[in-house]
């Protein structure tokens, strides 16, 4: 069915897409492909949950269909909608043809009966606006379906989603039941802003993606920003890891580390001195309070007078 025969093979193929997968991630994804179950990926923001779906689609050579959830999302936005305007337009344009068809009838009842026979013209796929879920179900080629930030959608949408996810078919009253041609690979992501229902969790394989370890994060940087010198990369990652241990309103995530690494390359930085940090720290920390806290921590003047160089800052393990 899929061309992955082991978790390791999947891991390598994700690595080719420049996505560093942990053993856990590879195992869970492999299982979900074999068992045809959706993956529920949870974890802090910016650790690569959405990215996982993207690279998985690339690695499998499939199209990615994305459904971004938000509060108030409903079936018409997620599944399908009749295109009223187009229907109206067609009725207008076909008015002549309609009167032709109905010209030889004598009674109103007969006209209505005849119109009823032609009804399916107006309720056909032609006028059906396909939203992501229906697109994934009807797609001729197998696809990867990403349902992003499911925790932002309302509880009732979650219940509706259950029905779709359990057997991949939808009933449209005017058209009948539509069944999936191919089982899509489904990835759901959640930032855990609210508790998901037990029923939804039960149907999924659970994957928790946490912040990476120092070595993992370093590898990610080497993969994605190879231009950054190894020494600087290590210092940068060490600093980010240290920031994560601090009590911040928003800890820097992997995506922010990557942005920062790119910024360092763009600025042609050769060392993490005070000046570079001052100018680029805002890439990592997005709250003024956090920034101030980090500055206090890193740029605090030491009480000892061992300091000779004015540029490099004290008490930092990544001093050049």
């Amino acid at each position: 069915m899929t061309h992955f025969t082991s978790p390791n093979m999947l891991k390598d193929s994700l690595l080719n897409q420049k996505y560093l997968a942990s053993d856990e991630l590879a195992t869970v994804v492999y299982l979900s492909l074999q068992l045809e179950k959706p993956i529920l990926a949870e974890g802090p923001a910016g650790v690569g949950k959405t990215e996982l779906a993207k690279v998985l689609a690339n690695a499998m050579g499939r199209e990615l269909i994305r459904l971004q959830c938000y509060e108030g999302l409903d079936e018409t936005k997620a599944l399908y909608e009749w295109e009223y305007a187009k229907q109206l337009l067609y009725t207008q344009l076909l008015r002549e043809k309609l009167s032709q068809t109905l010209s030889d009838v004598s009674t109103l009842r007969e006209a209505a009966d005849r119109l009823e026979k032609e009804e399916d013209v107006f309720f056909s796929m032609r006028f059906l606006l396909q939203r992501p879920l229906l697109k994934a179900i009807l797609s001729e080629k197998p696809v990867v379906l990403l349902i992003d930030e499911i925790d932002r959608a309302d509880a009732e949408f979650e219940a509706f989603l259950l029905e779709v996810l359990s057997d991949f078919q939808v009933s449209i009253p005017e058209l009948g039941t539509l069944k999936a041609v191919h089982m899509p690979v489904v990835v759901l992501t959640s930032n855990n802003t609210r508790e998901l229902s037990e029923a939804l969790k039960r149907r999924c394989l659970y994957l928790y993606i946490d912040y990476p370890t120092l070595e993992q994060e370093l590898q990610v940087i080497r993969l994605k920003v190879p231009e950054l010198s190894p020494k600087l990369a290590r210092q940068a990652v060490e600093l980010v890891q240290r920031l994560r241990t601090m009590d911040l309103r928003k800890s820097p995530s992997v995506s922010e580390t990557l942005d920062w690494a790119k910024a360092l390359v763009a600025l042609n930085a050769s060392a993490l001195d005070q000046q570079t940090l001052e100018t680029t720290l805002s890439v990592l920390l997005k709250h003024e309070a956090d920034l101030q806290r980090a500055r206090q921590q890193f740029f605090a003047r030491p009480s000892r007078d061992q300091r000779s160089e004015t540029d490099s800052f004290p008490s930092a393990p990544w001093r050049n």
Binding site: P7, E24, Y30, L31, L40, K201, Y206, L207, Y208
Partner: peptide, 27 residues
């Protein structure tokens, strides 16, 4: 059980991850 059938029990680490992904749905 279905997942364990696919991945087997020989590799302890894989086995652990298999069980965890299928049984535990809350970090």
């Amino acid at each position: 059980f279905r997942a364990v059938e696919w991945l087997g029990v020989t590799d302890r680490e894989t086995f652990r991850l298999t069980l965890r992904a299928t049984l535990v749905k809350d970090a």
